[in-house]
Structures are given as structure tokens and as C-alpha cells.
Design a protein around this nucleic acid. Sequence first.
DNA 1: AAGAAAAGTCAACAGGTGTTGGCATATGCT
DNA 2: AGCATATGCCAACACCTGTTGACTTTTCTT
Lengths: 190, 190
Amino acid sequence: MLAYAVGMAERKSDRTRAAILAAARERFGADGYERATIRAIAADAAIDPAMVMRYFGNKEKLFAAAAEFDLRLPDLRDLPPDELGDALVRHFVTRWEGDDTLLALLRSSVTNEAAADRMRGIFAAQLAPTLRALAVEEPAVRAGLVASQTLGFALCRYILGIAPIATMSHDEVVAWLGPTITRYLTSSAP
Amino acid sequence: MLAYAVGMAERKSDRTRAAILAAARERFGADGYERATIRAIAADAAIDPAMVMRYFGNKEKLFAAAAEFDLRLPDLRDLPPDELGDALVRHFVTRWEGDDTLLALLRSSVTNEAAADRMRGIFAAQLAPTLRALAVEEPAVRAGLVASQTLGFALCRYILGIAPIATMSHDEVVAWLGPTITRYLTSSAP
DNA sequence: AAGAAAAGTCAACAGGTGTTGGCATATGCT
DNA sequence: AGCATATGCCAACACCTGTTGACTTTTCTT
């Protein structure tokens, strides 16, 4: 196999690797870590279960690979402070609905310690630093508060399907949760 | 077996029945529905796994029996509206920490539909009517919003263990979440 | 005290799980 | 073309799960 000027040529294994990862995210997202079986993931990807092991070693490592996630937080520095919450909430909802990874992470983190670690990492290593850059006081506390409202909303909307929450429009979600997040970011500590 | 004037005599089976239920709540709370095995629950209760089946039929029915839960919402009608959130949050936190059932329910509802049903039922059949009695508009929407912040907080504090959230005092929790809940109950629809 | 009913024990079943090693096929290089 | 390597499939393993039926021991009634 050669490396061309523009990068590696696409091997066939890259495609199945990607197919496995996509199927894994879907299954972990729909069933959670323990109920998502390697056999089911392999079937979705139309390959043999043994291939999953060859490519990722074991189930833990497969999950670790499938649950890599970047919040892709936008630059919020030139926003008026009282619009921070709205912007963050809108970003979260879109991010949540465009990618299976967060759902896989949420469903798995409740019963799997490695998944919980990942989830903690996202808020500690991605959200908290962003808040620090905004000169928010006690960024870790605020990040935790944002996590509590954000994850709770996702739980009610995407997993539990609590009726009025699950059917809200994006605008309604922003109107309800935005001010909460803004307060968590801008209010002085109690 | 006789029925006495003051009620049924306590059979031995009542004690083991209670022991099984307590062990079940603990295991479901610590491990979630699928990872909590009947064998482990039986071992905790110091009995034979077959007893669990004799007493409760199957795992589903055991969970149904173990996950019965009453929020025990206090009477909030003579509280000034701007103190509603504080009172509710304080009640939730205490209720959460004094009973394994809610944790079992939360951990299980993410991957088990019956548990999710129970969770929905708690907010639809216990919280929403209470809000209706307080003359809150759109009680179902407000109940859903309260659920989102309340469950999200529990997720972060008791399951994920997100650092600053997990170590907050009750007073801090009330100070941060109280105003949010109050707004969800008293603010007019957006 | 004798017998019925309740409570508890034991071993096994059928099915599903992650994981492994051996074997076949296809791909790409020289 | 021939060969090494990458890719894939199959069958099996050891283990764990919920669940069952037959058997023994305890408890209570008569």
C-alpha cells in the first residue's frame, strides 16, 4: 500500500471500519452499552462478529472508538452575556440531533463507568475551558449546572419521551431553557 | 394461619419478601435493570434464586414491585409563588437521598421501557396534578420542565458524579436550582 | 401426634454473550 | 505469474443469564 501526495489511499478495510463504527453508535444509542451486542452491531454492518474483534480488539475498545465526541462549541466571545444561554441551548439541540454519539454516550453512561468517564470529560475538558475563556467565574460549577439541565432535557426528550418535552420545537426549547443557562453562566454565586 | 384482631400475623414469608425487595432496589439502583441479576439479588437477600421466582414470578414483575414509588409531594398551596421552586427542590433532594427507589428507576429507565413508563407516570400522575391544583398554567409542560432539571441534576450528582455537582450542599443546590424551578412554574409561556 | 401446607434447596435446562483460532478468499506488490 | 498480506467467514469455547421442576425441611392446623 502506498501513501500518495494527498494522503493514504482508501483501503477496503477503512470502509468496513467506518461501517462498524456507524452501526456501533446506532446500537449503543438505541440499546445502551450492555444490551448492544457485538453480534447485532456486526449484523447491522453486514459483516462477521469476528471482524469487530479483529478491528477493535474487544467491546470496551469498540465503545471507546465509537464514543469519541467533540461538542464543537462555537465562539461565544462576541455575544452579549444575556444571549449566551440561547446560543448554547440552540447549539446543543442541533448537535444532539445530528449525531448518534451523544445519545450512545448518554444511554451507556448510566450503567457503564467508561462511558460515564467520557461524559464527565466532555463537560470538564470542552465546556468548562470554553466558559473560562468567557471569563465566567467558577467555570467548573457552571459547567456542571449546564450539564445538569442539558442532559436532563436530553434524557426527557430523547430517552424517556416525556410528552410535552419530546414534541417541543427548537424555538420553544430555546425560549424555556435559554434563560436558565444564561442565569447559570452569569449569575453570581449564591 | 390466623387473622388476629389487629391484622394478619407476620408470616416468615413477609420478611423474606421484604428482604428480596430491599436487595432488588439496591441492585437495580447500583447496576440498572439488565446488569442487576436475580442471582445477585438473591445472594444479597441470603436466599435461593428460585425463591425470587416463587415470590415474584419473573424479573419484570420483581422490578415492577421494587419500583413502586410515591413522590410524597407536600402541600404547596399556602406558599408564596416565588418560594415554590426552593421548596420543591429541597423536597426532591431529600426524597432522592432517603430512598433507593428513585435511583433504581432512573438507572433502569434509560434502557428498560417498563422503567421508563414508571418514570413518565411519576411526573404525569403525581407532579402534574399537584401543579394543576396550584393553578399553574399548562401543568404538563411545566411538569416536564421540572422533570428535565430535576432528573438531569440527579443524573449528574448520583450517577455521573460530575465533581462540583456531586459535592454541593443541599443549600447550594436549592440556591442554584430553586429559581429555575420557580421560573418554570410561574413564568408565562414563551 | 399425624398430616397438610408453606418455605426453602438443589441441579439442570435452553438460550445468549464476548471472544478465539483455524481456514478460505481476495487483494496488491514484485 | 506467483507470492505475501490483508480481509473475511465459520465453528466452537467458556461463561453467565432467567427460569423450571423435583425434592427436602420447616411450620402450622386438626
